[in-house]
Nucleic acid binder design. Structure first.
Lengths: 191, 191
DNA sequence: TTTAGCCTATCTACTAATTGGTAGGTATTG
DNA sequence: CAATACCTACCAATTAGTAGATAGGCTAAA
């Protein structure tokens, strides 16, 4: 049932890669079936509907992200170092093309056309990320590490926007290194 | 043929609104037909294929954008004022929900799944916008208006990323005012 | 130990709806 | 007349989803 490398996991991984490439409407059960080496109907056994599949996928993504934030807090005391490591994580994913876009950022762009159950999960990820970044700026401001020109919340939202926009620019201009250029310039503000 | 409020224009406007809502794969000729009040086949008369339609749409968008940049340069001498007005333009579009997302930013997110002809047009818009912003930062740095902490190009790319990411966050969190919060914080850097 | 029952995972084969697109006809209009 | 704009009526392919069969494995009762 909870086999760590089950067919269900393979379906989720494949769906995630396809969504990252083309969004919710950019893939079909047939696409997954071909990659995973299974018949279309068998996917419905694991995930009765497309909404079930994508909701499960985002749920897992959100849990991984939360675990990632916790790991970053364990890996560094300084909030600035945490932000540096957060950005470095994405820079690696993008430059080695292993995971070149945040699956929630991508689906957020098509949010009005998303099934409500999926849209709600996507929004929750943004809220989680926004809250974690805000807490990082709050801690940094309190300890004197950061000298903020606006509220921690506004700094966090601006930070998040720049990171997501950086993914977009790197993709649009076909230049993965651009993400690093943008995030370096972003992090320079806080030194 | 070049009737300023022709059926073709109505199709383009409708397609644009549908793409802004859900991306390239988020709409069909049937959707447009219903809104415009015409039959599906008639759309093919004006735009033989979906690629033709969307390419024409992005082409027009790019021309409008370029005209907008020229207008901004006419409306203000100070590059900083130009950036303020650029951001204010989008803030208005987003808060009054008339045009809540850049159609090219949206399609950039699904770039790998886009027909190549459309993808190329989208990339050209990013290049144009990036070039205009870079020139604004160059002029501002030369005239002493801006004190930049990295190259004009890097500042421009970071600026563009933050604006696009701001659209994304406003949409994801269902809070149009968030775009203003983010861009205010962005513009504060250059005062 | 064998056997019966059940659960899981997969399959083939289907469905209704939708997709982008075509063929060919009919008005209207310069 | 000839071009433009629109129509009805198709088409093949694809979409998400269903029905029902089969095979294997686990468990519990005879």
């Amino acid at each position: 049932m909870s086999n760590p490398s089950s067919t269900a996991d393979g379906i989720l991984a494949c769906a995630r890669a396809l969504i990252i490439a083309g969004g919710y409407n950019g893939f079909s059960y047939a696409d997954i079936a071909e990659v995973v080496g299974i018949r279309k109907a068998s996917i419905h056994h694991h995930f009765p509907s497309k909404v079930d599949l994508v909701r499960a996928l985002v749920l897992r993504y959100r849990e991984d992200a939360k675990a990632g934030f916790a790991a970053l807090e364990r890996a560094a005391d300084d909030p600035r170092d945490q932000l540096v490591k957060y950005v470095a994580y994405w820079e690696k994913c993008i430059t080695d093309a292993s995971d070149p876009f945040c699956v929630c950022a991508l689906m957020a762009s098509e949010l009005p056309a998303l099934p409500p159950a999926v849209a709600a999960e996507v929004r929750l990820h943004f809220e989680t990320l926004s809250a974690w970044l805000t807490s990082a700026f709050e801690r940094g401001a309190a300890s004197g590490v950061f000298r903020l020109s606006s509220t921690p919340r506004a700094e966090a939202e601006t930070f998040m926007a720049t990171v997501h926009g950086g993914m977009l620019s790197a993709r649009a201009l076909g230049d993965p290194a651009l993400f690093g250029t943008i995030t370096n310039s972003l992090l320079n503000r806080f030194q």
